[in-house]
Amino acid sequence: MVSSSDRKDWALSFLLVVSVAILGLLTWWFIVWHFELPPALLPSPRQCWDAGLENRQVLFDAVFKSTGLASVAGLATSIFLGSLLAMIFSQSKKLRLAFFPYIILLQTVPIVAIAPLLIIWSGYTFRTVVIVTVIVSLFPIVNSVTTGLLSIDKDELDLFRVYRAGRFKTLRSLQIPSAVQYLVVGTKTSAALAVIGAIVAEFFVGDATNFTGLGTLMTGWQALAKTDALIAALFCSAFLGLFLFGFVHLISVTILRRWVVS
């Protein structure tokens, strides 16, 4: 249900966001023009747009067929693996205490430090890119789903106990459905992280699919001092993150609409 005030809020928000974007572009253009910056240091918005158009096929393939594919594959793996781990953690406090700190450790180890090691083990492959993406995007999902599985309303739990529902039935009919909202929140955070993971991995791995990824394009254009194309690629990576986030949001809205009070 969208009330008219919701629609007004949405329109206002859209207007403000577009205004900020225009203001930002104008400022950018003004700086380039006023200080007469060389294009290799900071090209004008127009030059970046042109460079993007010129490389549109490469960028399109990078966004959708290489980096995007790796992000989606990594995110999907994280959702599956993360939910599975969370389910195991929800069953035993001891397991949780023993292993949760290592999941946090996985989050805190800098990914740039693990990437070279992963290349030794897994090679310059698409698989390595996906593994890096999983490592980066796993934690938010494990964390939020575990929280979701464990923060069950006391009365709901009592209801299940009155009917002597065992662990499995409680997990299946109470804990997992309750945790869906938490999974959505975790996945939204992870969606943006997955793109970062894929691009960072591509810095190290290079071309892992038949198509050049955004990370590889960026390092290449940096070496050639093609700053305008580099900035265009930067925008593409931001859009990929947004796209993935929006996609997760859309799915979640469709699933949760029926029963979550918005």
Binding site: D155, E156, L174
Partner: peptide, 28 residues
């Protein structure tokens, strides 16, 4: 199933329809 409990709050599962909520004890 011989003892049933009614809580102060309705304690319905939000992802189930009214009917599915009533089916729950039988299902369990």
């Amino acid at each position: 199933g011989q003892i049933a409990f009614v809580f102060q709050q309705p304690t319905l599962l939000p992802w189930r329809t009214a009917l599915q909520n009533v089916v729950l004890p039988l299902e369990l």
